[in-house]
Simulated scan of single mutants.
Amino acid sequence: MGTDPLALADLLRVSNTPGFERWREQVRRTGGCSDPIHLSGTTVTRDRATGDVLYSYSTADEPGGRLRVACGNRRASRCPSCAWTYAGDTYHLIRAGITGDDRKNVPATVRDHPRVFATLTAPSFGPVHNRPDRGACRCGARHPENDPVLGTALDPESYDYAGAVLFNNHAGQLWQRFTNRLRRELAARAGLTQRELKDVLRVSYGKVAEFQKRGAIHFHAVIRLDGPNGPDTVPPSWATVQLLDDAIRAAAVHAYTTITVPAAGDQPLRRFQWGRQLDIRPVKAFGDGSDITEQAVAAYVAKYATKAAETTGSLDRRIGNREVLDL
């Protein structure tokens, strides 16, 4: 198969224009962005005292009168190039937070701080098709990994679709309540008030949301205990991985960690808490088969930082009107 004649003619035309080298430089700077943003306009910087022009720029001098910049979309389904850059940045940011990085002002001593990788899941809204580790799905079938029915309701008539949507909408608030309660649980275990806790301990974390096959959000979080001034300071001796583990489990199920959504229309009042599946694993420098390593945590968080609802077969963009839906 040869090159399309029209495309070839267009390439030859562009490559022979006076601004081709500048155009190519713009393309290179976008990093291969699949949907660059085209900017047009001017900017002028003046000396505040004298009014003299210190710098001026106009896109009129650019090829086509436009400046091309990367879209910066983190979703791999929308722009693989920008998502790759975002994932790389996320990996190094998370890794610095658990191994230390002088370039990011995080000392290597954070490796000695209590660190865990926690996963908080959504509650059940009804049974769905799945692939259990042992045996078959409740429907009796053994679904292949890419079976499109995975995550769909076994009984669509009784499945709480509205509840699932509302939970996703309020998951951020539930996380905020969880982190507030976590500090209280840590203070209680240390025999301190919350104000006293701030003088000796800081809770640091990085999290990412992942959509499960059923479309419900759950959170993966790296949670670390620092001294009062952050990673540069040593946490108190009583701040251990086991204490952090206990505090997380208590905070996740506490009555305070609840979001109440009032009744509206034909929808009843709902109270949301985290699901029963709660996984907490210590982060270790080197794996021994039971714990998760620093590199694995950073890679996992970076992976899901570039994925969203499209991983469940949903749209990866805003819905502006009903016509964009494949009904």
Rank of each mutant, 00 (worst) to 15 (best):
I248P: 07
T258G: 10
L325R: 05
A239Q: 07
Q194K: 10
L244Y: 03
S237N: 12
I37Q: 10
H254E: 12
N180R: 15
S15K: 11
E145M: 08
A190D: 06
L54M: 10
R13L: 15
A216P: 02
F20A: 15
D199L: 15
L186Y: 06
F125T: 02
R138A: 13
D155H: 14
P107R: 05
R46D: 01
E294V: 05
A209N: 14
A162E: 09
T119V: 07
R131V: 02
R317N: 06
T43Q: 12
G163W: 03
L67P: 03
A308Q: 14
Y161C: 02
L243A: 11
T85R: 15
S290V: 13
Q176T: 12
A136G: 06
F178C: 02
R134H: 06
R270Y: 06
S56A: 11
G64K: 07
N16R: 15
W23G: 02
T90C: 10
V69A: 00
P235A: 07
R131Q: 00
R28T: 14
E323T: 08
R317V: 05
W23S: 09
R318V: 13
T152V: 01
R184M: 10
P132R: 07
P127M: 06
G151W: 05
T45N: 05
L8E: 10
F167H: 05
A49P: 00
G191D: 04
V165M: 09
G135C: 03
L120K: 02
A9M: 15
A122R: 04
W23T: 06
G88F: 13
R138P: 01
G313K: 04
R29K: 14
A60F: 08
P282V: 05
I98W: 03
R95E: 05
D160K: 05
L197H: 09
K303Q: 01
R224F: 01
P63S: 08
A298K: 01
T90E: 09
